[in-house]
Nucleic acid binder design. Structure first.
Lengths: 156, 156
DNA sequence: CTAAAAGCTCAAGTGAGCTTGAGGTCAAGG
DNA sequence: CCTTGACCTCAAGCTCACTTGAGCTTTTAG
């Protein structure tokens, strides 16, 4: 506590892990994938500025929204590299989530309507009854055969 | 067309694949996992009754709702083994989805509210700001570190 | 009758997102 | 000073939901 807080404002990977709830191994993995960065102490140990916590928050929330790590990395790359991101910077990034969230909510509502109606009654002629998600082919929520629910087979 | 339709009402794996949009390899996989069954022709080829299509529909929709194949298998095991499932049987199964769907929609709405507000402003003190999904620890939607968003680390 | 299409099994591979383990270094408390 | 815990790298392993490929048999259209 005293240590990290006083010595130069930098946090260890353990500190970050405890404060974020994200495992140290995951943090190293995110670094490898370019989602977060780290300074190094002379010893080679990672040192993080406090601001990385906000970045990690973004990552975790974006995952809940349904973005892959690659997509999240692309989003994070849009942040200004020279200065600390402002509230507006973060807002701009996450504004694109809204559409995705809306689409996903709409799908879930279609599913709820469809499940008793459509599966129960036998009208489920599978080519026609596309309850789910006709547009959002990158939604990436829920694995499984996606062709049926709106996606096209890749390369075909 | 003539073939399958007239010869005993049974469909081949190719028929089922085309009608459901689920790849034959996936159908074999589902069989291996006990989600669907198949009769066999003398040759060893799979033969499906039409009713399997409804079962497959259930599987695909359940996946979109966020259930794993194992959970889906457990659900399907609740269907009566002796007779063809009725509309009511299907409804009973999928009624449990509603709670899940509601929880997920609620989470997505919290996320939408939270993303600009919480990430942007810096209030995101990660232990306290649990926007996401406080109850539904089995939600299994979206990968990633789930402790932060409500799940506990396993065995701890 | 024959060639092509469709099916079969079984083993191995894929990709996303991490975790675990081996083998070693570094730092902080007693 | 020394032990203990935190950290390091790198490679391998894991889960989920499938797909792919090899090698072989069966079915069907011409």
């Amino acid at each position: 506590m005293l240590r990290s807080a006083l010595v130069s404002e930098l946090l260890t990977i353990g500190d970050i892990s405890r404060r974020s709830g994200v495992a140290a191994s995951a943090l190293r993995f995110y670094e490898e994938r370019g989602l977060i960065g780290a300074q190094r102490a002379g010893s080679g140990h990672r040192r993080y500025p406090r601001s990385v916590l906000r970045r990690i928050a973004f990552i975790v929330f974006a995952q809940r929204v349904g973005l892959t790590l690659e997509e999240i990395a692309r989003e994070l790359a849009k942040l200004p590299p020279d200065r600390a991101p402002t509230k507006r910077d973060w807002s701009r990034l996450s504004s694109s989530w809204s559409a995705r969230i809306d689409a996903r909510i709409a799908e879930l509502e279609r599913l709820r309507v469809g499940l008793t109606g459509c599966i129960g009654c036998g009208c489920l002629s599978l080519e026609r009854c596309r309850l789910a998600n006709p547009g959002d082919r990158a939604s990436s929520l829920g694995a499984g055969p996606r062709y049926w629910v709106g996606d096209r087979p890749r390369e075909a």
